[in-house]
C-alpha cells in the first residue's frame, strides 16, 4: 500500500481491551452485596445437589425426636408436630423448590423468547396473534390464573411447573419482542442482511444474542418470583403433597402452631424461602449493573 491513509489517525488510540474479570471484580467491590449473593447462590446449589446426603435425619421419618421441640443442639431447627427434624426437612426441600422454579423459568424462557423474537422481528400477523395470546394471559391476576390451571389440570408437581411457566411466558415474550424490535433496523442488522444472512439467521444469529444480557437479568429476577409462586401454591394445598418436604407446605403446616407460639415450624422454612428469593433478586440486580451500568435503579 503506497497510500498512507492506510495508517490510522494516530490521536485516537482506543483503550486497551478491558478484562471481563476485572470488570466483574469492580462490580463486586462497588456492591459487596452482589458478592455475597453469589456466595449464597453457590450455597443453594450445594444444598440442592447434596442436601439429602448431608442432613442428620430422614426428612420424612416421624419421631426423629419428641414432637414440637424448640431448637436444640440435637435438632438445630427443632422438631415439628410429628416429631420430624425441621433442619433436615428445610435442607432437603431445597432441591424440589429449585427444581420447580428452574424448570418453569427454563420453559418460559425458551418458549417466551422465541415467540417474542419472532413477533418483534416479523411483526404483522405473527405479532398480532402472539400479542393477543400474551395479553390474554396477562389479563388474569397471574397467581390466580396459576391456581385455576392447577385446579383444572390436576393437582400435581408437573402441573405446578406448567402453570408457573405459563404465567411467566408473557414477561419473556414481551421483553424479547421489545429488545428485538429496537434492533430490527439497526445498522449492524442491515449489514448482516447485506452480508448474505437469511432472515432467520439475522434474527437468531445477530439480533437474539444481543438481547440476551437484559433477558438474563430478567431470568434471575424471575427465578425468585417463580420460587415464591410455587411455594404460594403449595401453601394453599396445591401441587406438592405432605409429607414431602417443601418450604411452602412446611410453612402451611406450621401456620396452625404460630398462635400458640411454636415459631420454629414457620420461621425456618420461611427464612429459607426468603433467602433463596433474596439471592436471585440480588444476583439479578448485580447482573443488571454488569450488563447495563446506565440503567441502574
Amino acid at each position: 500500500m503506497a497510500s498512507s491513509l492506510a495508517t490510522p489517525e494516530a490521536s485516537t488510540a482506543a483503550p486497551a481491551r478491558e478484562g471481563y474479570w476485572q470488570h466483574l471484580r469492580y462490580i463486586m467491590a462497588e456492591n459487596p452485596l452482589t458478592g455475597i449473593s453469589f456466595a449464597m447462590f453457590i450455597g443453594l446449589i450445594i444444598m440442592a445437589l447434596f442436601g439429602p446426603y448431608l442432613v442428620p435425619f430422614d426428612p420424612v421419618a416421624t419421631g426423629a425426636g419428641p414432637a414440637l421441640m424448640p431448637p436444640s443442639p440435637a435438632h438445630w431447627f427443632g422438631t415439628d408436630h410429628l416429631g420430624r427434624d425441621v433442619f433436615s426437612r428445610v435442607v432437603v426441600a431445597t432441591r424440589l423448590d429449585l427444581m420447580i422454579s428452574v424448570s418453569a423459568v427454563a420453559l418460559s424462557f425458551v418458549f417466551g423468547s422465541v415467540i417474542g423474537s419472532l413477533s418483534g422481528y416479523f411483526g404483522g400477523w405473527t405479532d398480532r396473534i402472539a400479542g393477543r395470546l400474551m395479553d390474554t394471559i396477562m389479563a388474569f391476576p397471574l397467581f390466580v390464573l396459576a391456581m385455576g390451571i392447577v385446579a383444572a389440570a390436576g393437582n400435581s408437581v408437573e402441573n405446578i411447573v406448567y402453570a408457573t411457566a405459563i404465567i411467566n411466558l408473557p414477561f419473556y415474550a414481551r421483553m424479547a419482542r421489545a429488545e428485538v424490535s429496537i434492533r430490527r433496523n439497526a445498522g449492524f442488522v442491515q449489514a448482516a442482511r447485506l452480508s448474505g444472512n437469511s432472515e432467520l439467521r439475522v434474527l437468531f444469529g445477530h439480533i437474539f444474542p444481543n438481547t440476551l444480557p437484559p433477558i438474563m437479568v430478567q431470568i434471575s429476577l424471575n427465578m425468585g418470583w417463580a420460587i415464591l409462586n410455587a411455594a404460594g401454591l403449595s401453601f394453599i394445598g396445591l401441587g406438592v403433597q405432605p409429607p414431602t418436604p417443601e418450604w411452602g407446605i412446611m410453612v402451611a403446616e406450621g401456620a396452625n402452631f404460630i398462635i400458640s407460639g411454636e415459631w420454629w415450624l414457620v420461621v425456618f422454612p420461611g427464612m429459607a424461602l426468603m433467602l433463596a428469593v433474596f439471592t436471585f433478586n440480588l444476583i439479578g440486580d448485580g447482573l443488571r449493573d454488569l450488563v447495563d451500568p446506565q440503567r441502574r435503579t
Partner: peptide
C-alpha cells in the same frame, strides 16, 4: 453499503 453510524453498524 456503508452505513451512517459506524457504532450502530457493527454487531456489539
Amino acid at each position: 453499503m456503508v452505513f451512517q453510524d459506524p457504532t450502530d453498524s457493527l454487531n456489539p
